[in-house]
Design a protein around this nucleic acid. Structure first.
Length: 192
DNA sequence: ATAACGATCCAG
DNA sequence: TGGATCGTTATG
């Protein structure tokens, strides 16, 4: 029996949320139908003292949703062409989020292939920019609920493989923190 | 007002 | 390994 993760789940400490998200099913319903996939890789970004977190300069126009209640989307645009999907965590006032870095496609694969102009299922969502393109997620989705009809995460009882902690990818500062988590047995992660 | 840069991706 | 490409943020 599958159950949707509640907003209370996202209000927990970010590292706990990040690890627990591995193996869960992300679901997005749009006008064309249903897209879903298993989360296999994430990274945590926590607070104003995390030098890689967008909250490192305090609250700004872009990151304000990170300061809000957990259980909402934070999508931002980077490198002039890519969108990044985050789940806001912790209680209101604590700026933190989990970056979704890789997903194993489950439902709506043909639509993802069309969105990405790519056939290989292993390369459809194996990166934060790729999965946003596959799911059609954009900045205007920022602030939407993760417990609504459009976006949700489901625990379908499937157990992930071994979850490992590594350093985060693509950052210059904060490299020492082991805040990247992924299923070491999954072939859908961005890289090992 | 302006310039530097970034939680990336893909081609070569 | 380098280039694409542009919104965000800091700095003058």
């Amino acid at each position: 029996m599958a159950s949707k993760l509640s907003c209370d789940f996202y209000r927990q400490p970010t590292l706990d949320v990040a690890k627990t998200l591995i193996g869960k099913k992300f679901v997005h319903r749009n006008s064309k139908g249903k897209l879903s996939g298993r989360i296999v890789e994430v990274e945590a970004y926590i607070g104003e003292d995390d030098p890689a977190c967008h909250a490192r300069f305090g609250m700004t126009g872009r990151n304000s949703v990170m300061y809000g209640d957990g259980g909402h989307l934070y999508v931002y645009f980077i490198y002039g062409m890519y969108n990044m999907l985050n789940f806001v965590t912790e209680d209101e006032g604590v700026p933190a989020a989990v970056l979704i870095r890789a997903i194993e496609p489950l439902e709506g694969i043909s639509e993802m292939q069309a969105n990405r102009a790519c056939i290989d299922e292993r390369q459809l969502c194996s990166g934060p920019g790729k999965l946003c393109q596959a799911f059609g997620i954009k900045v205007s989705d920022t602030g939407k609920s993760l417990t609504g009809a459009e976006f949700s995460v489901v625990d379908d009882g499937i157990q992930p493989g071994q979850i490992v902690a590594r350093t985060r990818i693509g950052i210059r500062q904060g490299r020492d923190l082991l805040w990247r988590f992924y299923d070491s047995e999954s072939k859908f992660v961005s890289r090992k």
